[in-house]
Each structure stands twice: as C-alpha cells, then as structure tokens.
Design a protein around this nucleic acid. Structure first.
Ligand SMILES: Nc1ncnc2c1ncn2[C@@H]1O[C@H](COP(=O)(O)OP(=O)(O)OP(=O)(O)O)[C@@H](O)[C@H]1O
Length: 731
DNA sequence: TAATAGGATATTTTT
DNA sequence: TATCCTATTA
C-alpha cells in the first residue's frame, strides 16, 4: 500500500510500528482512528499477517462496523476472522465458547439496566433493606463500580468498613449469586467474568494470548480498570499492544473510566514508543482554536499541541434565545437558511445537547417544520414495554433459569396470576431448592393456591413448554408464534391503552428487525438475536448517509464529525450541570465534554442557550454557560434570530451593575472602548462598525435589558444592532 | 386480583 | 412536566 499518500509522517510511523507497545496520544480530529484502520490494513496487506491474529477494540459497535468496512475496502477483500469489536462484544464472543467452565450454560442471558434493577430490588427485599436509605440506582452504581474495578463480592465484603458500604457489599454478593442462579450476566459481568475465566483457567488465557498477537484499542482514555486489566492479560505474551486516545476526551469517568490507564501506559509497558499526532484535519482553525482555549482551563492535564491545517473559516456563532422553543426554532431557521445559502444537506447537521430530556422540544419543533431528523436517544426501541415483554418471553423459553424475565411475563398480559400467588410460588421454590419455574410446574402441590389459579398457572407453563419445543424456528417465526400462543396482539387490540396502536406498530417493526437480522446472519440462532439486540447501542444506529439531521447527546457524539454542529442548551446548571460547581473533577470532565462537542464540527459551530427554560415543570431564568466565556472573544460572534451578527464588545456607560458588571466578572475581561454616556447616543450620530464600516443611527429602541440601534451603513444598508454587543465605535 | 388515583420524585452522561 | 410507585377500592 502506498501509505504515504494517505498519512502524514507521524501517522505513517504509527502505522508501520508493529512490534512492541505503542501509545498514540493525540488530540481530537488528528486521525487516530484513521491511523488504526490503516495500521490493520497494512498488517494484513503488506506484512501478510494473518487477520486471525488481530484484535481491535472500539468504543461502539458502530465504530467497529465502520472500521471493518474501511479495512475491507483498503485491502480489497473480506477478512472474516478478524476480531474488531467492542469490549462487550469481544467478551460475549469468548464467553459463549467458554462460560461452561464457570458454571453457566451457553444460553446465558444478558441483563440490561432494567432487568438489573428488578433483580437488585429483589435482593434488597430479601435482605430486608429499607429503600428509604438505599436507593436502587445508587446500589446499582455501587455494584457497577465494584465490577469496573474487578473487586469480587468476597473482597468487597472483607474490604468495606463503613456501615453503608458493608450493606452495599452484601447486596452485591447476593445479587451476584442470584445472577448466577438465573444463568445471567449483566453488562459489567461480561468483562468481569471473562477476566475471571482467564484467571481461573490459564490454558484458556494462553490460547487467546497466542491468538491475539496484535492488539489495538481505540478511545483508550475511556477504559476502566477491568478493561485495562483484560487488555493487559491478553497482551502479556507478545506485548504488541497499540493504544490510541486523547486524555482530553475522557468523558466516562462517572462510569469508572480511569484516565491514568492512558497516562501511565508507558510506566506499565517497558520500552513504550510514544507517537503524538499534532495536526487536526477535521475542523476549521477558528473552531479548533476555541476548543484548545477551552480545554486549557483544565488544570489537571498533560499539555499538548494541536494545530489546524484548515483555514480560519467562519467565526463561532452564539445565539441567545428567549425560551427553549425559540432556541429550537432558531436551529430550524438556521438549518433551512444555510442549506439554501451554502448548499448543506440535512445530514450535515448535528444537534448536540447535554441531557436526553433536552431533545423533546427539538423533536416537536422539527416535526412541526418538517425537518427530517434522527434521534439517538436513551429510550431504545428494544426497551419499550411491549418489546421487552416479547423479549422476556423469548428469554424465558431459552433460559429456564431466568427468573427476572419469567416474573415479568408471568402475568403479562393479565391472566390472574398476581403478586400473592407469585409470593407463594416463590416461597415454595425457596423451601424446596428449585427454580421459580419448577415450582410453577409443581403448583398443584402447593396447598395455599386455589385450583382455579393453579389451572391458570398450568396453562401458562404449558405455553412455555410448547414454545421450548419450537426453539429451532427462525427468530421471526418464533416471535410470531409467541405472539399467537400468548394472545398478545388480541390483548393489545382489546386494551384501552391509548398507545395500543403504536405498540402494535412497534411489534410489527420488531418482527421486521428479526427478519432483517436473519437476512444478515444466515442460520443464526435465537440466542444470537437476543445478544445482538442487548448489546446494540443507540449510536450504532447513527447513519451518516441518511438524509436527516441528527439529534444526540454530547456523549454519544464522541468519535463522530459533522460539517455543522449546534451545541444547544449552553447554560449553567445544564452544561456544566449544577454538580460541577462543587466538584473540580466533575467540572473538568464536563469541560472535556465541551471539548469533545466543539471538535465534532468541521465547518460551522453554533452555540445556543435560552434565557428562560422550564425545568421540572418550573420556568426559571438561566445564565449562559461558563464554558462560553472561556472562548476568546475574537473567535465568537453573537447573532440574532436570522443569523446576522450582533455583538462583540460591551459599552461601559450602559452596564447596569456599575464598573464590574456580572459579565465582566464571569467572562473574559471585555475591552471597553468608548466612554460614551447614554444621552450621547441619538439619532443622527455617526458610528463605525467592525465589519459593516461607517454608518448613522436612524432609530433607537430602548428596551429593558438592551438597546437596539438601527444603523444605516454607507455601504451595507440598514442593520439592527445591539448597542451592548455590536462591535461599534462612535466617531 | 385488577384498576385507578394521587403523590412523590427526578435530569446528567451509557456499554 | 411526565413518569413511576404505592395505596386504596371495586
Ligand atoms: N493524513 C490525513 N489526510 C487527510 N485527512 C485526514 C488525515 N488524517 C485524518 N484525516 C481526517 O480527519 C478527520 C478525523 O480523523 P479521525 O476521526 O481518525 O480522528 P480522531 O483522532 O480519531 O478523532 P477524534 O479524537 O475526534 O475521535 C477524518 O475526517 C479523517 O478522514
């Protein structure tokens, strides 16, 4: 391959350094992912390394898929046996082969957050823990923390000293036992159990160590301890390990990512070669410079160089909206405007926000104005109630031990098996050391259950038994069979649920998804289908080819790029969130998130915020984000609703709060150019504008919080300007 | 046991 | 505001 045609010198060096530990530490848009991709292609095509020996780990399934496709097009052939995947998919793949060694069966189910929640609640009930003092979500976070640090339940119990901590550890232990009983793993367990497997069975580890002679990890800054440890185990034999990342883009500390994994890499691996990529290929210079300036405010970081190769481009634009609605309307307006004037398409726009809840208003307004959009959100398709119900049926059929799923569907649709009955069944199961399902089979033996109820239970059990006979059906056929046997469709049709129609449509779509899956994965089993839908994430459905604008959180945007980016809701309390103001670490992580957001933009970057916004059903005043004040003034310009320039400097005599205005205290010190007093501003007065040149004031609007000037420019017609903000001088 | 009403509670971020 | 949970009643 003619690598030098596609890579700069440093990238080239990284691609051709194959042996030994290699750290590529580089800023946003410097071509890190590109470098890994070419590195893989180079290994296979030029060095004739067997693709079987390569392992590449990406952050999302989407990134993995893309990398696979890129590599394929570079080497001109399919490399089927190459492992490019996320940590989670990698581990599932290993565990599906080996998990019997750990006492699970191969048809284990993967629990998502909601299943996890149900199970934790159960555990807390069993341990009689008062939910007033211990919140379920807090417990889940705690348990997740243990697993991210590879702390086993027994270790947690012996290590924890505090009263609350001891209780957390206890729940953790019971939760783990329950998971095992249910033959299930949660997300974190996928990694945890893989490590456990490697520790307990050195021969298995040795096999994978020999197999993966070359290992690459993208987005390494966001790995947690367990992931780090897993990689370390795998790389131990050959030490051909290449990690790539940017410490300034570490945005998942809250879920256990440890920035030190990347910072201490060289301490961990002797003779590490470090390569820095210092050219940014993605963004216009103004955008990049703003990003660089913002991140400079983080004190705990390694300084690095990132130079633009692109021209300045347009200045960053800031719009202050009166309300959240206006904010969304502005975005619509701008999208349409610059599509027309600059020829962008819908797919060129990314709208990024801090919290998922912010997307709603945008959806509403986009629908109203017929802007095609794609929402990358948290309420995933597969998490809708009706879909989860069907999945729970499938899981119950596939994995007889899965109690969480069983409980979910035992009375869904309502068939008269209520809480009281379930408690009785549960008790019986406990006493006899059998599973809940088995106690249902034996429900005739339980004297406290009426014959009528026990008949209903038997009916249900029979449905499951009959379905188990049909496991070998194609997934889509199987789903249809479930629906038929259970009578789910009729149940929905007859229900008064106002959403029944949508639910039916969703089920329709679910079946389509299954058909789709079968087409793509010929002969795949139902287990594989389940796994696929549990591990698939939201960003994975982002498709840059589709002709719609994209709505997503800043977190999801990591690794992507858009010609035009809107960062919306730039308000203190939202971004950065209130918590950040108490904790430096949180603030710095937030700032990194801001850095990530800014650097997604290639050509044009907008910031918006709303003066008034409803939060929790209460409308309150907002102030503009602290991060905005960290952007140098000469890189950003205030614009009005129609996208015309408004701002730049402050006029001292008109500031309401005396010499040190609020803005001056919290923003970059603004230059005060004129000592003009209010009564000197009158119609007929000559002024000079930074971009529009000389002109004369023709009208003055004195509002409560700003003064609007209508200025007739000698060469630019009449413009509306804000006295406060416009870059004007009085002459 | 099922359905409903009223109250508490939440918004970070996700594989 | 919207959702989720609990307690009450039919
Ligand atoms: N040598 C190069 N020549 C031309 N374009 C390049 C080069 N290197 C990178 N690019 C382009 O720059 C953009 C950013 O590349 P890439 O996504 O690989 O960067 P990254 O460092 O992984 O970014 P991030 O850290 O933001 O995820 C891409 O559009 C890529 O095609």
């Amino acid at each position: 391959m003619n690598l030098k045609d596609f890579l700069n010198e440093e990238q080239y060096e990284a691609v051709t350094t194959i042996d030994g530990p290699l750290l590529i530490l580089a800023g946003a848009g410097s071509g890190k992912t590109r470098t890994i991709t070419y590195r893989i292609a180079h290994m296979i095509k030029d060095l004739e390394i067997n693709s079987y020996q390569i392992l590449a780990i990406t952050f999302t399934n989407k990134a993995a898929k893309e990398m696979k496709e890129r590599v394929r097009s570079l080497i001109g052939q399919v490399a089927e046996n190459m492992w490019i995947s996320t940590f989670h998919s990698l581990c599932v793949r290993i565990l599906r082969r080996e998990i019997e060694k750990l006492g699970y069966t191969k048809s284990f189910t993967i629990y998502d957050f909601y299943d996890q929640k149900t199970l934790v609640k159960q555990c807390m009930e069993i341990l009689k823990i008062n939910t007033d003092n211990f919140e379920v979500s807090e417990v889940i976070r705690k348990i997740s923390n243990y697993k991210n640090k590879f702390i086993k339940p027994s270790e947690a119990i012996s290590q924890e000293a505090g009263y609350r901590e001891k209780i957390f550890a206890k729940i953790y232990e019971l939760y783990e036992n329950k998971l095992h009983e249910n033959n299930s793993l949660d997300f974190d367990n996928l990694i945890f159990k893989t490590i456990e497997l490697f520790e307990k069975f050195p021969d298995v580890l040795a096999f994978y160590q020999s197999k993966f002679k070359y290992i690459m990890v993208d987005e390494y800054q966001d790995t947690n301890y367990s992931q780090y440890y897993l990689v370390k185990l795998l790389a131990l034999k050959y030490k051909n390990i290449c990690v790539v990342g940017d410490d300034d883009q570490c945005i998942y500390q809250w879920r256990g990512a440890d920035i030190n994994n990347i910072l201490d890499f060289e301490k961990d691996y002797k003779d590490t070669k470090i390569i820095k990529l210092e050219k940014n290929y993605r963004s216009k210079a103004n955008i990049l410079n703003a990003a660089n300036k913002v991140i400079l405010n983080n004190l705990r970081r390694k300084d690095k160089v990132l130079r633009p190769i692109n021209s300045d481009g347009e200045k960053l634009k800031l719009f202050k909206a009166g309300s959240a609605e206006e904010e969304a309307l502005f975005v619509v307006n701008e999208i349409l405007r610059i599509m027309k004037s600059k020829g962008y398409e819908y797919k060129d726009f990314g709208i990024l926000y801090r919290t998922n809840s912010q997307s709603r208003i945008f959806e509403e307004i986009f629908v109203k104005h017929q802007i095609p959009y794609k929402l990358i959100g948290v309420v995933r398709f597969y998490e809708r109630k009706e879909i989860k119900d069907i999945i729970a049926y499938i899981k119950t059929v596939v994995n007889p031990n899965d109690e969480v799923s069983l409980r979910r569907i035992v009375n869904e649709p309502k068939r008269g098996i209520g809480d009281a009955t379930i408690d009785k069944l549960f008790e019986y199961a406990e006493q006899n050391g059998i599973t809940l399902f088995d106690s249902m089979v034996a429900c005739g033996e339980i004297s406290t259950i009426s014959t009528r109820t026990s008949n209903t239970i038997k009916e249900f059990v029979n449905i499951i038994f009959e379905l188990r006979e049909e496991k070998e059906l194609k997934t889509s056929e199987f789903i249809k069979l479930v629906l038929k046997k259970v009578g789910y469709i009729d149940f929905l049709k007859n229900s008064k649920d106002s959403e029944a129609q949508t639910r039916l449509e969703n089920i329709e779509e679910f079946i389509n998804a299954a058909v789709n899956f079968e087409d793509l994965n010929y002969g795949a089993s139902i287990d594989e289908f389940l796994e696929n839908i549990t591990l698939i994430s939201e960003v994975d459905k982002y498709d840059e080819a589709s002709s719609s604008v994209t709505l997503m959180t800043l977190h999801s945007s990591k690794g992507l790029e858009f010609p035009v980016v809107f960062m919306v809701g730039m308000e203190n309390g939202i971004f950065p969130s209130n918590k950040c103001f108490d904790e430096v670490d949180e603030m710095e992580e937030s700032r990194r998130l801001c850095y990530v957001g800014i650097t997604r933009a290639k050509d044009i970057l907008y910031f918006t915020y709303a003066n008034l916004r409803m939060v929790y059903g209460e409308t309150n005043f907002r102030t503009k984000s602290k991060f905005l004040t960290e952007i140098p003034r000469d890189l950003i310009v205030d614009i009005n609703f129609d996208g015309d320039e408004k701002i730049v400097q402050k006029n001292e005599s008109l500031t309401k709060f005396g010499k040190f205005s609020y803005d001056q205290k919290f923003n970059e010190p603004s230059k005060i150019k004129n000592n003009i007093s209010k009564d000197e501003i009158k119609i007929g007065r000559k002024i000079k504008h930074k971009t529009f040149g000389n002109g004369m004031i023709v009208k003055i609007e004195d509002n409560v919080d700003d003064v609007k000037l209508y200025v007739a420019f000698d060469n630019n017609g009449v413009k509306k300007l804000l006295l406060d903000k416009a870059p004007i001088e009085f002459i």
